[in-house]
Simulated assay, not measured.
Amino acid sequence: MLLTDRVHVVITDRHGGVSADPYDSRNLGGAVGDTASNVLENRHKTALEHGFDPSRVVLMNQVHGVDVEYVTEPWRAETPAADALCTDQVGLALGVLVADCAPTLIADATAGLVGAAHSGRPGTAAGVVLNLVRSMVSRGADPARMVALVGPAACGACYEVPADVQASFPATGWSTSRHGNPALDIRATITAQLTDHGVADVRHDRRCTIESPELYSYRRDRVTGRFAGYIWLGA
Rank of each mutant, 00 (worst) to 15 (best):
G156E: 03
V133N: 04
V129H: 08
P170D: 08
A153G: 08
P152D: 06
A157V: 13
G95D: 04
A93H: 07
G123L: 03
G91Y: 01
T79K: 12
A77R: 10
L94V: 02
R139G: 01
T172W: 12
P122Y: 11
L132Y: 11
G127F: 08
H179C: 11
V165E: 15
I106L: 15
F169Q: 01
T104G: 07
S175A: 15
S135M: 08
P103W: 11
A157D: 14
L132H: 10
V161N: 03
G151E: 12
A125G: 12
E160T: 10
A77I: 00
V147R: 13
G115F: 04
G151A: 06
P152L: 04
H179N: 15
A117S: 14
G112L: 05
Q166P: 03
H118R: 03
W174F: 13
G123F: 05
T87N: 01
V137L: 03
L97R: 13
S138P: 02
A144D: 15
H118T: 06
S138I: 01
D108V: 05
P122A: 13
S138Q: 14
H118N: 08
A109G: 09
D83T: 04
G115L: 03
A167N: 02
V129K: 06
G156L: 00
T104W: 10
T172R: 13
P80V: 00
V90P: 05
P162N: 02
A84L: 00
V150N: 06
L149W: 09
M136G: 06
E160A: 07
L130Q: 12
A125R: 13
L130W: 09
T176Y: 10
T110M: 04
Q89H: 02
P152K: 05
A141C: 07
R134A: 14
A81Y: 07
V98K: 11
V165K: 07
G140E: 12
Q89G: 00
P103M: 10
G151D: 12
L113F: 07
T104F: 09
A157T: 15
A167E: 04
P170K: 08
V150I: 15
L105V: 11
V137Y: 04
S175Y: 12
S168M: 03
A107M: 10
E160N: 01
C155L: 01
A93C: 06
G140L: 11
A154F: 12
G123M: 02
A125V: 03
T79L: 03
Q89I: 09
T104Y: 10
D108H: 11
C158R: 02
M146G: 07
T124M: 03
A126R: 14
R121H: 08
R134H: 14
G120E: 15
S177D: 14
A167R: 05
L85Y: 02
T110N: 13
G120T: 05
S175P: 11
I106S: 09
A84I: 04
V114A: 06
G123D: 07
S177T: 15
V128R: 05
G156P: 07
A107K: 09
A82S: 13
V147D: 12
A148F: 08
V96C: 09
D83E: 05
P103L: 11
P122Q: 12
V147N: 11
V150P: 05
M136T: 08
G95E: 15
A111R: 09
L130P: 08
P162A: 00
G115S: 06
Q166N: 02
A107L: 07
S135P: 04
A126D: 15
P152I: 04
A77V: 01
T110V: 13
